[in-house]
Design a binder for these strands. Structure first.
Lengths: 195, 195
DNA sequence: GTGTTACCGGACGCAGGCGTCCACTTGGCT
DNA sequence: AGCCAAGTGGACGCCTGCGTCCGGTAACAC
């Protein structure tokens, strides 16, 4: 979508580019954003120079690698908004977002990082958070979402979610699900009674 | 308490040792456990060799540095147990633990790490978790703590809490407090109604 | 005061990540 | 078939963190 700058790559270069993105995608998902550039290059079967020539900053690679995840994130909130019961939609968003982030360590980091230059992801982030705000407003009207909920609470919980990291993927998913369930509990309106 | 091995240090060595622990303590608290040994040595005004001679493994340094935090953690759960209202005690434990961990990044990592050889901290951890289990059992009896709570939920939330990391210490404390409040909400027994 | 020895810290070599340069290869046009 | 610019990856130099060695210093006993 942004690679029409100048003059179209040669076929072999284009192939390498694809392999690089693929490698980056799987490594970011499994290990997080701090995998060495070298490792990505090796996995892609490519020299370091090629990687750096195509993606001078790691940022560029990140933006490209998480395009699909961003799309999926959009889909999640859109479906949440489409749900007839806003509270149920809200819950679904939390559950599915947690699962997405559980399966992709790197995406969480990228999504939460406030680093400049990530215009694409930042725009995505804004859209998603705005949508959640809308959904939350509706959910509050039903009285099921606590009135003092703010979008920052969700960000807070996403930050927190990144802290739960288990050894096996199975354990990771289970823990994430439990976390999502607890988070939903935390956001549910408590029927008056104080402390 | 464990430094009577063999023959008592010379006065200057003992002084260095103290400075090293002090440096490690403040650096661990501020930066987490991954501060380079070199940095600790520099802060303590000591050469790397001295640091390595006194604490061959970083583990040894960690154990010593967090002795006080461990004690404070004990105090927190003990006071929680002493509270007449178990649910209130339980809440206090969560609040104060979150604050302790918010002020000391390294301690969280040390407490949660399952690394072997950390017998001292592991014992502490066991004591604390057992105490929480007792407190939780009492709190459940009052019907205020949800019946399906397990100690692992608290560990999960502590892991999660480590994910919330803000730039300034003030923001960090505020976020931690909010997180603690939401966690307590999550653990509160929900009055029947499903989903 | 003096000797001994515990103790010190600068300097060393190793490992791994970084970004770049350049001699060679190869796709694609004619 | 042949040319040549686009493209490649190995090799280089830099930096940072690691753990250890060793010539020098000063604490403590006498």
């Amino acid at each position: 979508m942004s690679t029409d700058s100048s003059h179209a790559l040669r076929s072999d270069a284009l192939d390498n580019r694809r392999r690089i993105i693929e490698a980056a995608r799987s490594l970011f998902a499994a290990e997080g954003m701090d995998v060495p550039m070298r490792t990505i290059a090796r996995r892609a079967g490519v020299g370091p120079a090629t990687l750096y020539r195509r993606f001078p900053a790691k940022q560029d690679l990140v933006a490209e690698a998480f395009e699909e995840e961003a799309r999926r994130c959009h889909a999640i909130v859109d479906e949440g908004l489409a749900e007839p019961d806003p509270w149920r939609g809200f819950c679904r968003v939390i559950e599915r977002t947690c699962e997405l982030h559980a399966r992709n360590r790197g995406f969480t980091e990228a999504f939460l990082s406030t680093l400049a230059g990530q215009t694409e992801l930042m725009a995505s982030r804004k859209y998603i958070l705005d949508s959640v705000a809308t959904l939350a407003a509706r959910a509050k009207e039903t009285g099921r979402l606590r009135a003092d909920f703010v979008v920052d609470d969700l960000v807070l919980m996403l930050m927190a979610h990144r802290g739960v990291r288990m050894a096996s993927e199975a354990a990771q998913l289970a823990a994430s699900r439990r976390f999502a369930a607890l988070t939903i509990q935390a956001f549910r309106a408590s029927p008056d009674h104080v402390e």
